[in-house]
Nucleic acid binder design. Structure first.
Lengths: 146, 146
DNA sequence: TATCAAGTGAGACTGGGTATCGTCAACAGT
DNA sequence: ACTGTTGACGATACCCAGTCTCACTTGATA
């Protein structure tokens, strides 16, 4: 998932125009590995002297989210971030040290949702699960540092 | 959980001052059953002619959150809301029709977190689970309406 | 290459949340 | 009860994320 063409392909297939700004935003996203905020992309664009308006970045993110090419996650601090991801139901594991994210299926979840529905009488329609922790690399770094 | 004294007690025990504005905010929270936003409380206060500053409401919410008397949840639409709750780990089931919330233990979650940790190599530290659906009352109302 | 709707950018605007700072009042000590 | 300390308050200015508007541009199609 570090190839901007993935998003571009999705765009094309959904019948949206392949404009230069959208390619740029897709590129910026592809160049980021972990999660990122809209502001991150705005900064990236400015640093690289890529002329993309702020509004356009927000619009692109909105569109990509709709197409399931990226997903919104809410960080523990309340910030809204995005992660590039596969367009199937899944969850994110987020490293609280380096911001790297990984997708998981968490296949135990349907059972949990079913139990909760039974216990509360709610008809569960959707859920959101985000896991926070330390990724393997950071664990290694930490233990090396003592 | 419709008694403002719960929050007040928590405040007192933690060594914070029991000021009038804090009582008022606690009261406003107690009078709401489902989730609410900071803006909701600001409106409530104004409607009832209770003189509490906007900043104070935000500060009170922040404090109550720290003391685990209320919890922040992120609605699917990205809004930040709060729910009054017990100060133990749990999750929220939120009715997407009437905003009513219920707490659940979701005791299957530790197993899911463990599995995810094993699968990804992450050392899972915390997780956030929110479930959205239709509460029993709304289900009944809906079927009655046809 | 001409057309025209889809898309863009600048910038105004909105709304949630925070920082500042002078004032006030809850609590502890007398 | 009285008073001093200091945490808390309220008004207001401010900041930042995100949205809206509107005149202009550009990509897909013929």
């Amino acid at each position: 998932m570090t190839d901007p063409s993935t998003i571009v392909t999705v765009l094309d297939r959904a019948g949206f125009r392949l404009t230069e700004p959208r390619r740029v935003v897709a590129g910026l996203i592809a160049d980021r590995n972990g999660h990122f905020t809209a502001a991150d992309l705005v900064d990236d664009a400015r640093e690289r002297r890529l002329d993309v308006g702020r509004a356009t970045i927000f619009r692109a993110l909105e569109l990509f989210t709709e197409l399931n090419a990226v997903e919104r996650v809410d960080l523990p601090n309340g910030e809204h971030a995005y992660v590039e991801c596969e367009p199937v139901h899944h969850h994110h594991v987020i490293c609280s040290q380096c911001a790297r994210t990984t997708e998981v299926e968490a296949c135990g979840m349907p059972a949990v949702a079913r139990d909760v529905g039974k216990a509360t009488g709610f008809k569960i329609q959707s859920h959101r699960l985000e896991l926070f922790g330390i990724c393997p690399d950071c664990q290694a770094t930490n233990s090396r540092r003592g």
